[in-house]
């Protein structure tokens, strides 16, 4: 094993050619993750609440959409957004945005299911109590049901974000210069130490993901303790 290829390309792998060029590498991976994490939480909440309270055809359509997003590989959705977004919006969409859109949609679909389950898990009594003190349904949802449901869902949000970080590596396929793409680039340029390069890159992801993973376990324990 010879890790000189890593030390020689460390800055490039961590933040690309920034500040002289565009931001890339691990820094872009983080940026991509944070952006998609926020957007997926917004989608997840929106769809999850709608799934829990909606009735009739709207619910059917939404269930279909969420089911569809969960049935296709992330890679396929990236192809779709990469190809469709410029047509739909009529402007040139940078690769990073189409990847972010795909990750947010898929992440949102997975979160929607747990948000919906979380809301349904809150007892009927809570709704009735809220309504009886004069809250509207929206107010009960906002002030009574959601705060309790979100607390239960926090670990599944964090778990979803862990898979989201891993999925940002798929941006490689449409040529966005995040960590995996730069690693593959360094690999094809040097062609001598592929094992070292991918072990190192895997290690960076591992550090980021396990930190979040530990946080999820912590949060889950705290809430369990709070319930007792």
């Amino acid at each position: 094993m010879n890790f000189s290829v890593i030390t020689g390309n460390l800055a490039y792998l961590l933040w690309g050619t920034w500040p002289n060029g565009p931001l890339g590498g691990a820094a872009l991976t983080l940026l991509l993750s944070v952006g998609s994490a926020i957007a997926s939480a917004v989608f997840g909440l929106m769809w999850g609440v709608s799934l829990a309270v909606a009735r009739g055809p709207f619910k059917l359509v939404l269930t279909g959409l969420v089911g569809f997003l969960r049935a296709i590989p992330v890679l396929m959705l990236i192809f779709w957004t990469y190809f469709l977004m410029p047509i739909a919006l009529g402007i040139d969409v940078p690769g990073i945005l189409s990847v972010m859109a795909a990750l947010s949609l898929i992440g949102g679909a997975y979160l929607a299911n747990s948000v919906c389950a979380g809301i349904q898990g809150i007892g009927k009594g809570q709704w009735e109590a809220g309504l009886s003190i004069g809250f509207t349904r929206a107010q009960v949802l906002q002030h009574v049901v959601l705060p309790q449901a979100l607390r239960m869902m926090a670990p599944s949000f964090i778990n979803q974000w862990v898979s989201l970080i891993k999925d940002t590596s798929l941006a490689y396929i449409v040529g966005v210069g995040e960590l995996s793409f730069l690693a593959a680039q360094v690999n094809s340029r040097t062609m001598v130490y592929p094992a070292e390069i991918f072990l190192f890159v895997g290690f960076i992801y591992f550090i980021i993901c396990s930190t979040l993973d530990l946080a999820a376990v912590r949060v889950a324990r705290q809430f369990q303790a709070a319930e007792r």
Partner: peptide, 18 residues
């Protein structure tokens, strides 16, 4: 822990190239 907390794509690159 190792196999869950790193991307499949990077693992595939490792098995293929490394």
């Amino acid at each position: 822990a190792v196999f869950r907390n790193s991307p499949l794509l990077v693992q595939l690159f490792f098995w293929y190239f490394g």
